[in-house]
Amino acid sequence: MKTLKVDSVQLEFDGRKILQSVYLNCRQGEVIGLLGRNGCGKSSLLKIIFGTLEAGYRYVSIDEQYIQKGYHHNRIAYLPQHNYLPAGIKIEKLAKQIVDPQSWAEFTELSIFQRNAGKKIHELSGGELRQLETMMIIHSRADFILLDEPFTHISPIQAEEFKPVIRACAKRKGIIITDHQYHNILEVSDKVILLSDGVTKHINNNDELVTYGYLSGK
């Protein structure tokens, strides 16, 4: 089982410290839930791990091997908040370049794929597109998966469908997931980390989310 280690991440925007003492590690086989208020740097942290955002300082490694760009050689996959599939190409063709051949049979059994395999992205609704993009990332070749707000823009039923897929995927991959729908995150995660004041706080008890001011406690 491989381990993704993220340490000493520092990020500043216009002199404002966003991330200053970030530490987390994620083993294949576990789901890490990343919580935090708007603008606390959750998405920035995922982009730094993926390799698309430059940090003042960062240490990212897989099995102690330093990783400059997480996406090189399909080591890490990332679901951004925005849509990312190119237009004008059928979903099935796009999926074949992302989805792990070993997971292809499982992926093609998904009803969302079966309904839309022959379509192009402009023929899909926003929710369908989001669901397909998320499923492609979950079934990708990468050893580690970063999911940025996978429960946003989808219906509660679709969110319920995601959870067992994420859990099943976590048997062979490490997953870091963030979303404002914290109850979904708490339900699907093995470990929860709160990002507050640029620092990661490892949450052992959900009451700590109230203590640290993430939840109101009412």
């Binding site: 698309t52 996406y71 925005h82 849509n83 190119p86 992302i98």
Partner: peptide, 8 residues
């Protein structure tokens, strides 16, 4: 936005 597809 589609750059992420190629990176993934």
């Amino acid at each position: 936005n589609v750059y992420m597809y190629y990176r993934n």
